[in-house]
Design a protein around this nucleic acid. Structure first.
Lengths: 215, 215
DNA sequence: ATCGTTCTGGTACATTCGTGCCACTAGCTG
DNA sequence: CAGCTAGTGGCACGAATGTACCAGAACGAT
């Protein structure tokens, strides 16, 4: 039995990693993610996923005991990847002692770029986040995810000399979440420059202590 | 034919408003909202809605031509009500020239209270917002909704003397959205005091110009 | 080569789904 | 009264769904 053996996935899922079966498993998860983002959670059926992934119907029931499990695992994959990406960004930026304006530009640009280049993935993350509202197991994972975000934001806040890094991290994570949602819902192409950047510049600048971003 | 005649609903839907049929129509919409919030968009089927609303199956197809239309109308009902509620709050607070701390307490308390007392409704709003990502007609309504929020936030910003009310409104709406999402996902009972209030106090205080909230 | 496990791909089935249909009642207009 | 429209409620149908099942391929270990 391969099912329920969720501990076997590759730690490094780039290109050719993982055993043969693990790759197929991941293909299925990615297909699910694409479906959720493009056509909504309703459209996730074993058949639709199988077709999207290019595998026979039974492969989806082989790797995942039920539709519930399929959705859970999809969320965990997406959340893990997203956290890693964010982690890379912050850990790369933090030691450089940037100005607030540079932080805003870097974070905003990266975030808006990510959302714009993979909207389906981010829509799916929100959908799954809401799904987690109702499923205890997903809820736990979601909580871990939120905590990771908070820690990263706190790190950034300390790096710009925030006097209240914990509260500020709370505000920043909430704002970033809200902005991502706005970008997804609004669909404008100039979101990064027209909304995300100015909003973050203003926010970071004020939180840092009132120094104008371009001073 | 009653269908597609979406202009007929009551402007004042308390208790006994609207014609006989309009009340049933609204009952169906509210049942749908409850279902979405408690069991997710997937669980919205004609049969489930009918049972939840206490009407026969055919009533759902009589008042709404399709499942799509049912979801659209549900979103519009929820969005309209939510906007009205927010509008009432801001219009009541704005002329009172409150301090930033009072603003934070009022807005945060109200918002957290609303979310806590009707979590299903707010989950449903987010779900439908995501759905709007894919449906042009819903998207338009969502845009109007966002704009209303922005205008209200801008009004509040001017009332606390923000030097950049437009950008600040952007930040505030995004933050409130993110905080609501956090409250829904986290499920902690002390969210209002432990998270929402301090975050908003800090944010409002900084945006207003750096005066401590309790000064 | 032979065995056991992992994985594959096809098919079958009971259930649930959206929706169309129709006979019927309620309530108003003349 | 008749007649019309809005609204009601039960039922049926074809399509889609989750999932079980099974015969066999692939493949490492002995």
């Amino acid at each position: 039995m391969y099912q329920n053996d969720s501990g076997a996935q590759a730690g490094d899922p780039r290109g050719g990693g993982g055993s043969k079966g693990a790759r197929r498993r991941e293909e299925i998860l990615r297909a699910t993610l694409r479906l959720i983002g493009e056509r909504g959670t309703d459209s996730v059926t074993h058949r639709a996923v199988a077709e999207e992934a290019g595998v026979p119907l039974s492969a989806t029931t082989y790797y995942f005991a039920s539709k519930e499990e399929l959705l859970e695992q999809t969320f965990m994959l997406a959340a893990r990847e997203e956290t890693e990406r964010l982690e890379r960004l912050v850990l790369e930026l933090a030691p450089r002692s940037l100005t607030v304006g540079e932080w805003a530009a870097a974070v905003g640009g990266q975030l808006a770029g990510d959302v714009a280049s993979e909207p389906a993935k981010h829509v799916a993350l929100f959908e799954l986040g809401l799904e987690a509202t109702r499923r205890p197991q997903l809820r736990e994972e979601l909580q871990r995810w939120q905590d990771a975000h908070l820690r990263l934001a706190e790190l950034g806040c300390r790096s710009i000399g925030s006097p209240e890094p914990e509260t500020d991290a709370l505000v920043i994570v909430a704002t970033l979440t809200g902005l991502m949602l706005q970008q997804l819902a609004g669909g404008r192409t100039d979101f990064a420059e027209a909304v995300m950047r100015p909003a973050l510049e203003r926010l970071f600048e004020r939180l840092a202590g009132g120094v104008p971003a371009n001073a």
